[in-house]
Amino acid sequence: MEVLLEIEDLEVEIEERKILDGLSLTLNRGEIAALMGPNGAGKSTLASILAGKDNYKSIKGSIRYLGKDLFKMSIEERASKGLFLAFQYPVEIPGVAMSTFVKIALNAQKRLRGEKELDAIEFLKLAKIKAKELHMSEDFFKRPVNVGFSGGEKKKAEVFQMSMLDPILAILDETDSGLDVDALKVVAEGIKNFQSKDRGSLVITHYQRLLNHLDPDTVHILADGKIVKTGDKTLASLLEEKGYQGIIEAA
């Protein structure tokens, strides 16, 4: 099994406070890993560091992605090498249509990889297929990015972007929150369609209901700035039963 992502001893300080403190985690190709943990544990912080947010006061430790030092890659380089983050809180960009945004992003990535860019017709064809898979109406192409989207629409739009950009490592930050049962199914399908033996998913969630659909290989619990417990999917059910406190005390 080839290692996709390897985080070692990650320490992150925000405003004089250690948010992550010696976090280590490995994710292989073909693996779906769930990352769970109480609110404020630092899950989103970890996700945004992986995507390249660099406005944290200090970051220590190492992260290797596809065998390379992630800290040496720019944000856009990470994306073009297949790293994708579905944001917990997708950002609104008034004045930029969703289709314009995704087309520019897709072609920018292709350019960085030295691949042929898609023209308007090829792009639209692909976008229509992907939107249909996610049960999304096409009029959302024209809407400004995330502006006036409902919570569920924002999450679906993230999954849409993921399926358009076709990454290698998908980090999904609470993509299941705020979704009704049907939307949850669609999103889970989207993630399952994406997952393959070459790809990996890091699914950040609070709930078992998404994991029931996804059938994760591993479950990590993040607390006190580190992974306090790693197990298989039964750990998620145990968590449902005992709560974070129970698990953390036992660990």
């Binding site: 390249g52 406005n55 720019s74 944000i75 994306a79 944001f87 945004f101």
Partner: peptide, 16 residues
């Protein structure tokens, strides 16, 4: 900065 991060995280360069 949030908008910039979001755009760049999709592979778009800073100037773009």
């Amino acid at each position: 900065p949030e908008q910039m991060f979001y755009l760049c995280s999709r592979g778009i360069s800073q100037p773009e």
